Computed example of a mutant assay.
Amino acid sequence: QDTFQIQTQRASLDVYLADGSNIRLDIQTSDTAERILEVTLCKMGISRELMKYFSFFFFQDHEDGSLSVVKKVAEFELPYVSLQSMKELHCKLGIRKWYMDPSLDTLLMDCRASLNLLYMQAIQEVKKNWVKPTEKQKKELEFLQTNANKVKFLKLIREMQFYGYLRLDPCLCDYPEKGCSADIYVGSNEINCCIKLPTNQTKEVSLKINRLRSWQVTFLGAMKDGEESTLELRLEYNDSGTWQWIIFYTKQ
C-alpha cells in the first residue's frame, strides 16, 4: 500500500530520549507518527491514557552542546520519510512532553516510565540552560540528582523560571524596533522574549497569548547558499491597546 505515493517497505527508525539514549524500532516507511509514537510509548510501559501528554519532535544536537527543537511532528506525518527529506539538517526524532502547564507533571508522576521521561527532559533543560535556577536552587537540584530523587527534583524544578517552556534558537525581530535579536521561550500562555537592542541593551518582554489576534507564517527560503531556510513569523499583538504586527525571522 502506498501513502502519499511513498513506496512502503520495512525500515529501522531510531527514537531518541532526552538523555541521549535511543530506541530502535522496526517500522514500515508509511507508518504515521501517531502509530509509531503509540508503539514506542507502549514499549516503554506508558499507559494509553498518558500517551496524549507526549509527542514526537525533530531536533538537532549541535557541536557546541546546544539543542534545537526544529518542529513538532504532526500525527499524520511519516517520520521516516520526513527524516530522509531533511538529511542535510542532521535531524533526529525524539520524544518530549507536549504541554505548556508544568503542573500537569503531577498527573504523570505515578507511572514510573512517564516519570523517567519527565526527569530526563528536566535534566536536559538544566544542562542546556533552558531553565534559570538561582544558585541555591542549582545546588539543591544537583543534590537531588545525585540521590536520584526524581519526584523531589521535578517538584523543585517546577518553581524555576522557564521550566516547561520550549526554547527557540536565537532569532531576529523588529520589536520594539528594527535590528533586534531575541532569545525566545514559549510556555505558560506567553512568548517570553529576551531582546537585544541595536544599542546592545537587553530588554525582557512577555507577549501574552490572549493578546494575540492572528498570526502568519511565510516561508522565505535560505537567505544565503548553504544556510537553513528562514521563516517569517508575524504576530498581530495588542500592545497597550494598539494592535500591531511583530515580526520574527526564525529557522523554526
Rank of each mutant, 00 (worst) to 15 (best):
58 F>A: 07
96 R>N: 07
69 V>N: 09
106 T>Q: 11
83 L>P: 00
22 N>I: 00
66 S>H: 12
87 K>T: 05
44 M>H: 04
39 V>G: 03
41 L>R: 04
113 A>H: 10
70 V>M: 06
127 K>H: 13
56 F>W: 02
85 S>P: 01
31 D>M: 12
113 A>Q: 10
138 K>L: 15
92 K>N: 06
30 S>I: 04
88 E>T: 10
88 E>Y: 10
57 F>A: 08
107 L>S: 10
108 L>G: 06
118 L>Y: 01
62 H>I: 05
115 L>T: 09
121 Q>M: 07
140 E>G: 00
43 K>V: 04
144 L>K: 01
42 C>F: 04
69 V>S: 11
53 Y>K: 01
89 L>Q: 15
40 T>E: 06
94 G>D: 09
144 L>Y: 03
139 K>A: 13
88 E>P: 01
143 F>S: 15
63 E>W: 09
76 F>V: 08
110 D>Q: 13
36 I>D: 00
139 K>Y: 08
124 Q>H: 14
78 L>W: 01
43 K>M: 10
27 I>Q: 03
42 C>P: 01
30 S>E: 07
104 L>Y: 12
81 V>H: 08
88 E>N: 11
125 E>R: 14
139 K>I: 03
156 L>S: 10
114 S>A: 13
33 A>Y: 03
119 Y>S: 00
124 Q>M: 12
141 L>I: 01
42 C>K: 15
26 D>S: 14
96 R>S: 04
130 W>V: 07
120 M>L: 06
146 T>V: 03
27 I>F: 00
148 A>D: 14
46 I>M: 09
134 T>L: 07
26 D>C: 10
143 F>W: 03
54 F>W: 04
123 I>S: 08
65 G>D: 00
45 G>S: 05
97 K>W: 11
23 I>L: 15
46 I>H: 04
76 F>T: 10
132 K>M: 07
57 F>Y: 15
44 M>I: 06
89 L>V: 03
139 K>T: 07
88 E>G: 01
146 T>A: 15
144 L>C: 02
